[in-house]
Design a protein around this nucleic acid. Structure first.
Lengths: 185, 185
DNA sequence: ATCAAATCATACTAACCAGTAAGTTATGTG
DNA sequence: CACATAACTTACTGGTTAGTATGATTTGAT
């Protein structure tokens, strides 16, 4: 059930999680920043773990919405793939970009049997499927391999750009992606 | 000062840090696994933070040693660059690979002013410099851009492979790297 | 055998953490 | 007005954490 209060709590938590890291953000810190009672948080989320998973889910939904909006403006399938990749990379280049939530979460929760880790894996998979499908629709050669390589480049750009701002990771990733897509045409 | 005890403690800590994550590994857990007294750990490392930084330093040293060994066997500069990249990717493909320590650390400690974050940044930089230098020695075009793109591919492969084992990230990264190097010849 | 350094075990601190209990206040609907 | 709902405050539990204190035991060199 989405209520204003629930959305508000989630937005505050998301902000702290992405800026300070998940493990470094205590429930008390979220409650203090949101200026609410702790009981209220636990009314909407049964545990911190659940809150983290909802954070990942919301992040995924936003990403999805953003990308469908971008691609919807394009006429042909190849342009859509280009828009997808470049839109992603533009986002990474934004100074406010704090890394992909699901990648960060999988690093902070590296144990395979951890529910948070499993959620992050799930979102990483849908991300790749989105690329695969787009490559297939564009009628390119080896859509699976192409999508994997594009995912690799995008994730690499996300890491590199976040660690060392303004060293050209995004521009180089764009050039790289263009080479890959052109070669598969 | 490197003593056997210090090395031993560091090796136990490194193992736990890389397998469970840094924040998820308590000093008590290290002490228990190593079967030593807590005081002994604090004799050699003045804080957990210092231990983490030494862990990153040792990881970097091992990586460096490994790569110089690999490249030393090659005769010409281009082969050395190939060996460097492929050696890195083979390592990533190893089932025991747990991600690059400095990338993981920068995610677990995302605050720019954190000493651990700064250390991880430093090691990421030397990694890239190693690639740049190798590309330059090989006499390739745009060594800086090439090194950045290679770093991007390698880091992307590390993330992708660690999250989804056996989906071909390493093989695709190798093919991608070869394309890049060939194009710069 | 003695002495010193290294390591040990146990116990403590002060802070933090996730989550719960209990009773209070505000708000809007019948 | 009465009632219900939602949020509040304060305080607590039980567990964990990094780091320290204290004194005992081992070890190796002279």
């Amino acid at each position: 059930m989405a209520t204003p209060m629930r959305d508000y709590i989630l937005s505050v938590a998301s902000d702290l999680f992405s800026r300070q890291g998940i493990n470094a953000t205590s429930v008390d810190a979220i409650v203090a920043k949101a200026d609410i009672a702790k009981v209220t948080l636990y009314k909407y989320f049964k545990s911190k773990e659940q809150l983290i998973i909802e954070y990942l889910r919301e992040y995924d939904a936003r990403l999805w919405a953003r990308l469908t909006e971008i691609t919807a403006q394009q006429k042909d399938a190849v342009s859509r793939l280009y828009a997808l990749v470049n839109g992603m990379l533009d986002w990474i280049g934004d100074p406010e970009f704090k890394g992909f939530a699901f990648i960060n979460a999988s690093v902070e929760f590296p144990q395979r049997d951890d529910p948070v880790h499993q959620s992050s894996l799930e979102f990483a998979r849908t991300f790749r499927q989105m690329l695969t499908e787009s490559a297939r629709e564009a009628g390119l050669k080896n859509p699976d391999a192409l999508a994997l390589q594009l995912a690799l480049v995008i994730e690499g750009a996300a890491i590199t750009e976040r660690m060392q701002r303004g060293t050209g990771a995004v521009e180089n990733a764009k050039a790289l992606a263009k080479t890959l897509i052109d070669a598969a045409s």
